Simulated scan of single mutants.
Amino acid sequence: MAQPDILTRITTRLPLVLFTMNREETDGAYFEAAKRANDPVQYGAPERREVLGRQRHWLLESGLRRAGEAGGLTIAAKDTNPVGGRYTLLISDHFVIGRAKPDRYRGNIRPVRYRKQLAAMNAAVSQFQGDLFGLSAPVVAGPRLYGLFLSAAHPKDLDTPAFLNFAIPDSSLSRWIFNEPVETVIAAYNAVERPAEIIPDLAVVALKQKPNDVS
């Protein structure tokens, strides 16, 4: 599936508010996490880096759930396998969406077990695998896509995200089929909602009269 086809599917199958609200939630999560971690009353300098990462994770997860709720998507918060953490999934008839932090050096995401299971849907799987989440979802015509909101902190400003992208990995999690800034996705919605205005040509051609013409 070419990138333009995926972008069209995103803008026709997912609500705009999911992207606009998650943009706001992500900015707020990075700022609030840094604020909490740098509280000298709560944490000493040796603990702040670990606290910052955990706070950022918790705040980004809750922000993603709020954006999903605003967009009318089904929310699931499942335990990792093996158990060690929880992760949020937003589920619709056409997408299953999570979030991740790309590897700093390789640019891809950790190929953990649950992500591998979900990414298999991007190899033209046409039916939702409800057993992964313990949910009974309707059978849909056409494959669901596994999508991810990707973000990471700015290296020189830890209370600010360096980027927020929406991406579709391939089924092996080794490359991206689609990976664009959220602003690009939002702009695509705006282009659909407000098509370019066609201005009619109002120029009037005036015909010159011949000298002998009598009006």
Score class of each variant (00 low, 15 high):
122 N>H: 12
61 E>I: 01
209 Q>P: 13
87 Y>C: 05
132 L>M: 11
179 N>D: 14
207 L>D: 07
121 M>W: 04
150 L>M: 07
81 N>L: 11
80 T>Y: 07
156 K>V: 04
135 L>C: 00
127 Q>K: 12
97 I>H: 03
22 N>M: 15
85 G>W: 15
41 V>R: 12
15 P>K: 07
128 F>T: 00
34 A>K: 06
92 S>I: 00
193 E>Y: 13
37 A>F: 08
154 H>A: 14
81 N>F: 10
18 L>Y: 02
110 R>Q: 14
1 M>Q: 09
201 D>K: 08
83 V>A: 12
84 G>Q: 10
178 F>T: 03
52 L>I: 07
67 A>M: 05
200 P>G: 08
96 V>E: 08
194 R>A: 12
16 L>N: 04
117 Q>G: 00
105 Y>R: 11
13 R>G: 13
198 I>L: 13
105 Y>P: 00
210 K>N: 07
80 T>C: 03
104 R>M: 06
57 H>V: 03
32 E>S: 08
213 D>Y: 02
54 R>T: 15
27 D>W: 06
200 P>N: 09
64 L>P: 00
67 A>D: 02
115 R>M: 13
60 L>G: 04
106 R>V: 00
210 K>T: 07
186 I>T: 11
63 G>M: 11
196 A>I: 13
97 I>V: 15
130 G>N: 02
14 L>M: 12
35 K>Q: 11
129 Q>R: 15
155 P>D: 07
7 L>M: 15
42 Q>N: 10
31 F>G: 02
10 I>N: 01
81 N>V: 15
199 I>G: 01
47 E>S: 14
158 L>W: 08
104 R>H: 11
159 D>A: 13
160 T>H: 14
31 F>A: 13
128 F>Y: 11
152 A>Q: 13
48 R>C: 11
191 A>H: 06
124 A>K: 12
85 G>I: 01
195 P>Q: 08
24 E>H: 05
48 R>P: 08
99 R>W: 10
110 R>V: 13
50 E>D: 10
127 Q>T: 15
115 R>T: 04
101 K>Y: 02
103 D>S: 09
85 G>F: 13
156 K>S: 06
171 S>K: 13
5 D>P: 01
25 E>V: 02
71 G>K: 10
108 N>A: 06
100 A>G: 03
110 R>D: 08
152 A>G: 15
73 L>H: 01
184 T>S: 15
189 Y>D: 04
33 A>Y: 06
68 G>T: 01
179 N>G: 03
116 K>S: 06
50 E>W: 04
41 V>Y: 06
